[in-house]
Deep mutational scan, measured.
Amino acid sequence: DETGKFLVLSLYDYQEKSPREVTMKKGDILTLLNSTNKDWWKVEVNGRQGFVPAAYVKFL
């Protein structure tokens, strides 16, 4: 199980638009929880879990 094993870097600021999403700032290091959807990845940032656009992050 690779859940929570990968870190990704936020390339852009992102403001959550729904309760299922999370806000991140450019340069944030996020824990990747799920990347099965090619468009939206589930991450943990600042103690919160939610989705961010996959195009806004990259693997470290």
Rank of each mutant, 00 (worst) to 15 (best):
T23C: 06
Q15T: 14
K26L: 05
L30S: 02
D1V: 14
Q15M: 12
L33W: 05
D28S: 07
Y56V: 06
F51I: 06
P53T: 03
N46Q: 09
V52L: 05
P19E: 12
N46C: 08
V43R: 00
K42H: 11
F6C: 15
F59N: 07
F51T: 01
V45T: 10
T3P: 13
F51K: 02
K58M: 15
K17A: 11
K42Q: 12
W40S: 01
L32T: 01
Y12V: 13
D1G: 14
V45C: 09
G4W: 12
Q49L: 07
I29Q: 05
S18R: 08
Y56I: 06
V45F: 14
T23S: 15
L11G: 03
A55G: 11
E16A: 15
L7H: 09
V52M: 03
P19M: 09
D13T: 06
L60W: 11
Y14N: 02
Y14M: 02
E21H: 06
Y12H: 14
V45W: 06
W40K: 01
G4D: 11
K17W: 04
G47T: 04
I29R: 05
W40P: 00
R20P: 05
K58L: 12
T23N: 06
Q49T: 13
P53I: 05
W40F: 07
F6I: 15
L9F: 09
F59T: 09
D39C: 15
K25E: 06
L30R: 00
T23I: 04
L33Y: 04
L33T: 04
K58I: 15
W40N: 01
K25N: 09
F51L: 09
N34T: 07
N37H: 11
T36I: 09
V22Q: 02
N37M: 08
L11W: 05
D28L: 06
E21K: 05
Q49R: 11
D39M: 13
E2A: 14
M24Q: 01
R20V: 11
L11V: 09
E44T: 06
D13E: 05
S10D: 01
D28G: 03
N46F: 07
K25F: 09
F59C: 15
Q49S: 12
E44F: 06
N34W: 07
V8H: 03
S35P: 07
K38L: 09
V43Q: 00
T3Q: 14
P19C: 10
N37K: 06
V52Q: 01
R48V: 09
A54C: 07
E21C: 07
L60K: 05
I29P: 02
L30I: 08
T3I: 13
E44R: 07
V43W: 01
Q15N: 13
N37V: 04
M24G: 00
Y56R: 04
K5P: 14
T31N: 08
G47S: 05
N46G: 12
G47Q: 05
